[in-house]
Simulated scan of single mutants.
Amino acid sequence: MFGLILSIAMYLGALAIFKRFPFPLLNPLVLATIFIILFLKITKIPYENYYKGGEILNILITPATVALGIPLYNTFHLLKKHVRSIMTGILLGTITSTFFTGILAVLFHLKKDIMVSIMPKSVTTAIALGISEKMHGIATVTLVIVIITGIIGSIIGPSILKALKVTDPVAQGVALGSAAHAIGTSRALELGPIEGAMSGLAIGVTGVVTVFVAPLMTQLVLALF
């Protein structure tokens, strides 16, 4: 139970700090991660020992994602109303994201296995690892990049939307869910129920689209460069 209790305690502590100082950089997930790393380093407790309990939280990712269907059901009328805009936005966003991820990988002279490992960075862990495996990527690299993408997206996403004057709750939710998966959705839920529901929808759709788009964009980038 050690890893589980430590994770929850650190998150609650980070959440209290965020409520006291609500700055984007003090995101509770980011702070909790830093606190856990520092604690393990100071106490010299192996990560493997911590993860025996911490993996319980990982197991809960899938049912937590499925549970997003509840707010989606409550706002299903919005999905039917904006289905074309939502589907088009997610498709174009996924194509753009994976293509430019591949371009950056080429510019930074990353090996092919690293490139394919970071291509599915904007989908949930379970889907990203499956895509990475099929493309012969490195699972640990995929896992790290997915987490980093989610954290960064949840921190700067709302600020970018605000700067671009994107105020529609459907658009905000789709943007956060398709760019920052489950972590972005947790931030979207803080903005409102509509944002959270649309973000939850975007997670699933983006995952399905990425399964087909990521391999195609990889081959396109490799063919061009």
Rank of each mutant, 00 (worst) to 15 (best):
E48S: 15
L201V: 11
K44L: 11
G177P: 11
I147E: 15
M115N: 12
H109S: 06
L191P: 00
N49M: 13
L176D: 00
T167M: 14
K44R: 06
P22M: 04
V116T: 14
A64M: 12
D168R: 00
R20K: 10
F23I: 12
G207P: 01
L72W: 06
A188I: 00
K19T: 08
G207A: 07
S7K: 08
M198P: 01
L176G: 06
T88F: 14
D113W: 13
R20E: 06
V146R: 07
S186W: 01
F108N: 09
I17E: 13
G102C: 06
A223C: 07
L72V: 14
I45F: 11
L104F: 08
A105D: 07
L110C: 12
T206Q: 13
R84E: 15
L40E: 08
K134P: 10
A179P: 02
A105Q: 03
R84Q: 13
L216Q: 08
T210H: 13
L164K: 11
G177H: 03
V123S: 10
H77P: 04
L60C: 02
L143W: 04
M198I: 00
K112M: 01
V208I: 15
P158A: 02
G54R: 05
I17Y: 09
I138W: 09
A67T: 04
N49T: 12
V146F: 14
S178C: 08
L176R: 02
L25I: 11
F100A: 15
L161P: 08
L104K: 06
S159H: 14
A67H: 00
M119C: 03
L60V: 03
I194A: 04
L57R: 07
A16Y: 05
L72E: 00
H109M: 04
F18K: 05
L31A: 05
V123D: 12
H82G: 03
L92T: 01
L224W: 07
L60K: 04
F108C: 08
L26E: 09
P28C: 07
G157W: 03
A9V: 01
M217H: 13
V166H: 09
K52P: 11
P158H: 00
F225L: 01
A180W: 00
T210L: 15
S199K: 03
S117E: 11
T124G: 08
I37Y: 06
G150A: 08
M87F: 14
P63C: 10
P169C: 05
G177K: 01
L31H: 07
A105L: 04
T185A: 01
T96I: 10
T125L: 12
H181V: 08
K162D: 02
E195G: 11
K134N: 13
G204A: 10
A163C: 07
L6Y: 05
G13Y: 02
P215C: 03
G200S: 06
L220S: 10
R187D: 00
A67W: 01
G153C: 02
S97M: 15
P169I: 12
E190H: 07
I160G: 04
L15N: 12
K134D: 12
V170I: 08
A16N: 01
N58M: 09
L68V: 09
I148G: 10
L79G: 03
T96D: 00
L216C: 03
